[in-house]
Amino acid sequence: MSSSSWLLLSLVAVTAAQSTIEEQAKTFLDKFNHEAEDLFYQSSLASWNYNTNITEENVQNMNNAGDKWSAFLKEQSTLAQMYPLQEIQNLTVKLQLQALQQNGSSVLSEDKSKRLNTILNTMSTIYSTGKVCNPDNPQECLLLEPGLNEIMANSLDYNERLWAWESWRSEVGKQLRPLYEEYVVLKNEMARANHYEDYGDYWRGDYEVNGVDGYDYSRGQLIEDVEHTFEEIKPLYEHLHAYVRAKLMNAYPSYISPIGCLPAHLLGDMWGRFWTNLYSLTVPFGQKPNIDVTDAMVDQAWDAQRIFKEAEKFFVSVGLPNMTQGFWENSMLTDPGNVQKAVCHPTAWDLGKGDFRILMCTKVTMDDFLTAHHEMGHIQYDMAYAAQPFLLRNGANEGFHEAVGEIMSLSAATPKHLKSIGLLSPDFQEDNETEINFLLKQALTIVGTLPFTYMLEKWRWMVFKGEIPKDQWMKKWWEMKREIVGVVEPVPHDETYCDPASLFHVSNDYSF
């Protein structure tokens, strides 16, 4: 037999072997998808029940369902290793196997995995149920939502704001400190077992692309791009910072340095994350009609249902689908009040099986009107990829998912749209002054938050990498806050605090 014939037969044999492996992989994935749908849905439903009704029974049910899901994933991840990716030609099959071969938290021992889940659930519970009591009246206690958040959004009393700011960190942050220390250790162990340098590197892996249509993007490039983007917006932020400082000097004349940092408790919310609520103090042309339409919403008797129905109309107007019937029947759109304790931070849920929901303790404000559009943007994205195989139902990356939500809320905030839905009067006219007011309001929300987020994530990356010793977490946190964000702590904090974890995203294990 000629050498060319042998070569042809060899190629046929290799192709047949690849085809056999690929067919086996497809069969394996079909079985996995069928089983995963049910187990993931049960786990998601148990998590939803806990988040909307925080009880010991629900946390136990959530843990049990989560353990079943984790055990299943660990088993299936091991089985998926049997299919070598280099022998799979079908890109859809390869991407699913690649996702499943990534072990995630299931790489930890059973004891450590359970401990990590306990830590995460405990931190979430402390954050959502933590109360601050009035020292003069111990029976008068406030949760973060709505009590403390209400103070931080609306109060102009310097000392009341300081009390709310400090009490939240003292009551909740200190409880979270030992848990967060354990969390860092276990998450790093999980990341390294998955061949990442640390948990920050694991997060950045979400943005990594290897040879898809000839395109590559590394975790290191992400760090470079983040640094570059921050340097680009820094001059604009510094101008905004100086303008806000001048306006705060008028409101709090004896508390603000004309050349120094801004006190952290005066920036519009509990964390200084969004400066939106400073608009009334900083509006350049106050004689113009108010483009913050909160009062109009209240006057027109809007409620949470109306807010979300208007958001749905907005999405339908640009060619996107209505929310499902189940969305309206199962979402929690208002604070249950004293009936039950719930996690009030707005979140969009894709539970699986076409079950999409939003959890939000909606208030009738323009801020929540825009947040509703943001969260519904997440749901629209979830619905758009719902037909994909189970392992591919995700956003391109976390940042893109947020961008989908944010672009919709930005569009909904324009005076033209607000006028079209009757929240600005029919005779409202846009001119240079109203446009400047609008742009300032947008800058308070968007530009003001960028250094906050950059600095927070930089601190977390450094902590996970071990570049900040545990006994210097708070020292470095406030050094970076002053240097990068231009914000100063109103009272000193020692290493018993854990100020970063006083933010939902940190205590609940979300990256930005």
Score class of each variant (00 low, 15 high):
19 S>P: 15
19 S>K: 06
19 S>L: 06
19 S>D: 03
20 T>C: 05
20 T>Y: 02
20 T>R: 07
21 I>V: 14
21 I>L: 03
21 I>A: 03
21 I>K: 02
21 I>P: 05
22 E>K: 05
22 E>T: 14
22 E>D: 13
22 E>F: 06
22 E>M: 04
22 E>R: 02
23 E>G: 14
23 E>C: 14
23 E>A: 09
23 E>S: 13
23 E>W: 12
23 E>F: 15
24 Q>W: 04
25 A>S: 06
25 A>F: 14
25 A>V: 15
25 A>G: 07
25 A>R: 01
26 K>P: 02
26 K>G: 07
26 K>V: 15
26 K>S: 14
27 T>V: 04
27 T>N: 08
27 T>W: 15
27 T>S: 14
27 T>I: 07
28 F>M: 03
28 F>K: 00
28 F>C: 01
28 F>Q: 00
28 F>V: 01
28 F>I: 02
28 F>H: 00
29 L>V: 01
29 L>T: 01
29 L>W: 02
29 L>F: 15
29 L>Y: 05
29 L>S: 02
30 D>W: 01
30 D>R: 02
30 D>F: 00
30 D>M: 06
31 K>E: 02
31 K>N: 02
31 K>Y: 15
31 K>R: 02
31 K>H: 05
33 N>A: 05
33 N>R: 02
33 N>W: 01
33 N>G: 06
33 N>V: 07
33 N>L: 04
34 H>I: 02
34 H>L: 02
34 H>F: 00
34 H>T: 07
34 H>S: 15
35 E>T: 00
35 E>L: 06
35 E>A: 14
37 E>I: 00
37 E>C: 00
37 E>W: 01
37 E>F: 00
38 D>Q: 02
38 D>V: 01
39 L>P: 11
39 L>S: 11
39 L>V: 14
39 L>C: 14
40 F>G: 07
40 F>C: 14
40 F>H: 08
40 F>Q: 13
41 Y>S: 02
41 Y>V: 01
41 Y>A: 01
41 Y>P: 00
41 Y>F: 00
42 Q>D: 00
42 Q>H: 15
42 Q>T: 13
42 Q>M: 15
42 Q>E: 02
42 Q>N: 03
45 L>F: 06
45 L>S: 02
45 L>R: 01
45 L>W: 01
46 A>S: 06
46 A>F: 04
46 A>K: 03
46 A>P: 01
46 A>G: 04
46 A>L: 04
46 A>Q: 03
46 A>W: 03
46 A>T: 05
46 A>N: 06
46 A>H: 08
48 W>A: 00
49 N>W: 01
49 N>K: 05
49 N>P: 00
49 N>Y: 06
49 N>F: 01
50 Y>F: 06
50 Y>D: 03
50 Y>H: 05
51 N>D: 06
51 N>K: 13
51 N>M: 06
51 N>L: 05
51 N>Y: 08
54 I>W: 09
54 I>S: 06
56 E>T: 11
56 E>H: 05
56 E>K: 13
56 E>S: 08
56 E>I: 07
56 E>P: 12
57 E>A: 06
57 E>I: 04
57 E>W: 06
57 E>C: 04
57 E>D: 07
57 E>H: 03
57 E>R: 05
57 E>V: 05
57 E>Q: 04
57 E>T: 05
59 V>N: 12
59 V>I: 13
59 V>Y: 13
59 V>T: 12
60 Q>D: 10
60 Q>P: 03
60 Q>V: 13
60 Q>S: 07
60 Q>L: 13
61 N>R: 13
61 N>S: 13
61 N>W: 06
61 N>K: 07
61 N>A: 14
61 N>L: 13
61 N>P: 07
61 N>I: 13
62 M>N: 05
62 M>S: 07
62 M>K: 11
62 M>I: 06
62 M>V: 05
63 N>E: 12
63 N>K: 13
63 N>I: 10
64 N>L: 08
64 N>R: 13
64 N>K: 14
64 N>E: 04
64 N>P: 03
64 N>D: 12
65 A>F: 10
65 A>I: 13
65 A>V: 13
65 A>L: 09
67 D>E: 09
67 D>K: 12
68 K>D: 02
68 K>N: 12
68 K>E: 04
68 K>W: 04
68 K>I: 06
68 K>T: 06
68 K>Y: 04
69 W>R: 14
69 W>F: 06
69 W>E: 04
71 A>L: 12
71 A>Q: 11
71 A>I: 06
71 A>Y: 12
71 A>K: 13
71 A>F: 09
71 A>S: 11
72 F>R: 06
72 F>W: 14
72 F>V: 05
72 F>A: 04
72 F>D: 02
72 F>Q: 01
72 F>E: 02
73 L>D: 03
73 L>G: 06
73 L>A: 10
73 L>F: 07
73 L>M: 09
73 L>E: 08
73 L>P: 00
74 K>G: 11
74 K>Y: 07
74 K>P: 03
75 E>F: 13
75 E>C: 14
75 E>A: 15
76 Q>C: 14
76 Q>H: 09
76 Q>D: 13
76 Q>L: 13
76 Q>P: 03
76 Q>V: 15
79 L>H: 08
79 L>D: 05
79 L>V: 15
79 L>Y: 15
79 L>C: 00
82 M>W: 06
82 M>H: 11
82 M>A: 02
82 M>C: 15
82 M>S: 05
82 M>D: 04
82 M>P: 03
82 M>T: 02
82 M>K: 07
82 M>G: 14
83 Y>K: 01
83 Y>S: 03
83 Y>T: 01
83 Y>R: 02
83 Y>V: 14
83 Y>P: 01
83 Y>D: 01
84 P>N: 03
89 Q>E: 15
89 Q>L: 11
89 Q>A: 14
89 Q>P: 15
89 Q>F: 13
90 N>Q: 15
90 N>L: 15
91 L>K: 12
91 L>V: 14
91 L>R: 14
91 L>H: 14
91 L>P: 15
91 L>Q: 09
92 T>F: 15
92 T>Q: 15
92 T>Y: 15
92 T>I: 15
93 V>Q: 02
93 V>R: 04
93 V>I: 10
93 V>C: 03
95 L>Y: 10
95 L>E: 12
95 L>Q: 09
95 L>P: 06
95 L>W: 12
96 Q>V: 04
98 Q>Y: 07
98 Q>M: 14
98 Q>D: 13
102 Q>W: 13
102 Q>V: 11
102 Q>T: 14
102 Q>K: 09
102 Q>L: 08
